[in-house]
């Protein structure tokens, strides 16, 4: 466990604030994006911004930088989630019973 002798308080302190500013800027971007750029792809744009924010939080606030083992495990979990997404999305996109399905349009 690190002790007070090897904590570089000043630079870490500044680091926290810098990341905060970055996150605030990105949050602002979140708000102006739908009216400014990529307006047809709001969803994708929002998720990309979210991913950048998440990356910053993970690396700097959660100190994941340099954690090889934990990082690899994290990548593995995200990979699994991605696989679940891909397979389920393949399934929905090839749904064959849309015409007779009850759930895709409200029954009157």
């Amino acid at each position: 466990m690190d002790t007070n002798t090897n904590v570089n308080y000043k630079s870490e302190y500044a680091g926290y604030w810098k990341v905060l500013v970055g996150l605030l800027v990105l949050t602002a971007v979140t708000f102006v994006q739908p009216g400014m750029f990529l307006t047809d792809y709001t969803f994708a744009a929002q998720l990309i911004i979210g991913a950048i924010k998440a990356w910053m939080i993970l690396m700097y606030y959660m100190h994941l930088k340099g954690e090889k083992l934990i990082g690899a495990m994290g990548v593995f979990s995200l990979f699994l989630v991605a696989v679940f997404f891909i397979i389920v999305i393949i399934d929905v996109n090839n749904f064959q019973f849309g015409d007779v399905s009850h759930i895709t349009s409200p029954a009157k």
């Binding site: 696989v83 397979i87 393949i90 399934d91 929905v92 996109n93 090839n94």
Partner: peptide, 21 residues
Amino acid sequence: GYLVWGHHLYTSGMSDLAKTI
């Protein structure tokens, strides 16, 4: 083992492509 759950859904109305995979 994580990737094979769909073989329980062959008769549930899953798409043919997913069944094959």
